[in-house]
Write a protein that binds this DNA or RNA. Structure first.
Lengths: 259, 259
DNA sequence: ACGACTTCGCGTCATGCTGACTCGAAGTCC
DNA sequence: GGACTTCGAGTCAGCATGACGCGAAGTCGT
């Protein structure tokens, strides 16, 4: 007999990453700062954890796909439309939330800089620098740590940095994205060589004017290389067309399930 | 007002891998067969999908951790106790299961050969060869494909092959595990060099007698190297201590949630 | 007993990727 | 016009990996 609270509730949350708007209003001569990642958080308006910062998210409606729910709650709470959205992990410890049992399917997303400008930002939605995070509600700290690790490792074997940039960009801009994510300086020459060898870039033939030095070439990502052939290659990514299961099966053992 | 079916139901399933018991009763002189992976499946005894093969699993009890539920349902349905268990992905398309909405948190596990002997195996639980799988219920085919890809890619940067072997093993046995997973022959000499360089093996000093050739050394995995320092290294693995979230937050937007 | 046969275990060599570094090119700013 | 900046291409050394050779150490057959 199913009681109305005999099951865990399902929530969907998302960790969003964006580049900190270029070191504008920097007092130093514009160099040396490796740029940093920023994360939007929302303030909780209800118990438990009232008043503390948390990842944007919401309950999962019965008829909505997980991906859709992640994208929707993201849009509703922060106004952001992600360029990259992938499932991260499902957290479900019984004691994570005081009160009822909540299982959260967590996604992680990348948005590009321009998108950040349009984003909501009031007293209840705020962007935090990666290394200046407040104390978060529940165990969202650990989730954020995990998402950061995933972003760093995934950047090394996948080409997802473009999701943090605009349509066209210079080699230096792309390199600074990598530097911000990996948190270390990269040699410009070697970086160029590696990227060009990967074949994921297309030279637009145009150059960026207005700089106070030699005008750099503008590149664009090869769309045929981003969704690197849906089925097989993306190893840790979301499964291709796969997306559903139901294993309410206990053949050998009789369960208390209603028949 | 929460109706009793206003939410999706939560299930937990597991994809289990083991090595096919060494090419015993092989008619050929024992060589050339690269060994293969085997997967235990259970027959569904209820609708939907009655009679078809599916991944072992069950409903998630309110107070049980996800990992525990995966291990328990695994034990109950197949009698297996995994050596390695990690969350794979959460599948939750609204239309995956006819009838009600079911979201499944899927794990993947490795068990070693000896464990397979003790495993349940009747008309409702059966082991299938990786490339002789039956048609599965729901979209469990896609899930299995995804788990295989994860196993293959993870084997390359992590040392998890030992989970498919016994306590001690020869270099050739370990190599054959890699060959079975990666589905290609590996050079014995180069394999030895790479493994030894990784420093994850301990030479027991003993040798395996009874072979019809030079007796190979027996190795054991360095336990200090398997859980490669919990916190940071394991990139795509399960989060270290992290394990819980609750993002029932919709600050900017009023939701239908009960306050 | 002894040679054939097997795999083990250690070695070399060539190749390719990566980090460190150099240097001319091409703009802007003073 | 000269100083200054970054761009973009090149060289060189170190390290990991694939291909391959060969003596070592057992068992099996005659």
């Amino acid at each position: 007999m199913p009681q109305h609270d005999a099951h865990a509730r399902l929530a969907v949350s998302t960790v969003i990453f964006a580049l900190a708007p270029d070191q504008a209003d920097a007092d130093l001569p514009g160099r040396e700062r490796p740029a940093s990642l920023r994360v939007p958080l929302v303030r909780r308006l209800r118990e438990p954890g009232l008043g503390r910062w948390a990842l944007p998210g919401g309950w999962l409606p019965v008829h909505e796909a997980l991906d859709d729910a992640a994208a929707r709650t993201l849009r509703e709470t922060t106004g952001l439309v992600p360029r990259y959205l992938e499932q991260l992990y499902t957290f479900g410890d019984p004691d994570r939330s005081p009160g009822e049992r909540v299982v959260s399917v967590v996604y992680w997303a990348l948005v590009h800089s321009a998108e950040v400008e349009r984003a909501v930002s009031d007293e209840n939605v705020c962007w935090f620098d990666e290394d200046a995070l407040p104390e978060l509600a529940f165990d969202h700290d650990a989730i954020l740590d995990y998402a950061l690790r995933r972003l760093r490792t995934k950047l090394e074997y996948s080409r997802i940095a473009h999701a943090l940039l605009g349509e066209v960009f210079t080699m230096a801009e792309l390199r600074r994205v990598h530097e911000a994510v990996l948190r270390r300086r990269l040699d410009p020459a070697n970086f160029r060589r590696t990227i060009e060898a990967s074949g994921t870039l297309i030279d637009t033939g145009e150059r960026l004017a207005g700089t106070r030095h030699r005008p750099p070439a503008l590149y664009r990502f090869d769309p045929a290389h981003s969704p690197v052939a849906s089925p097989s290659p993306t190893p840790a990514g979301p499964p291709p067309a796969a997306s559903a299961t139901a294993s309410e099966t206990r053949p050998g053992t009789h369960s208390k399930d209603t028949p």
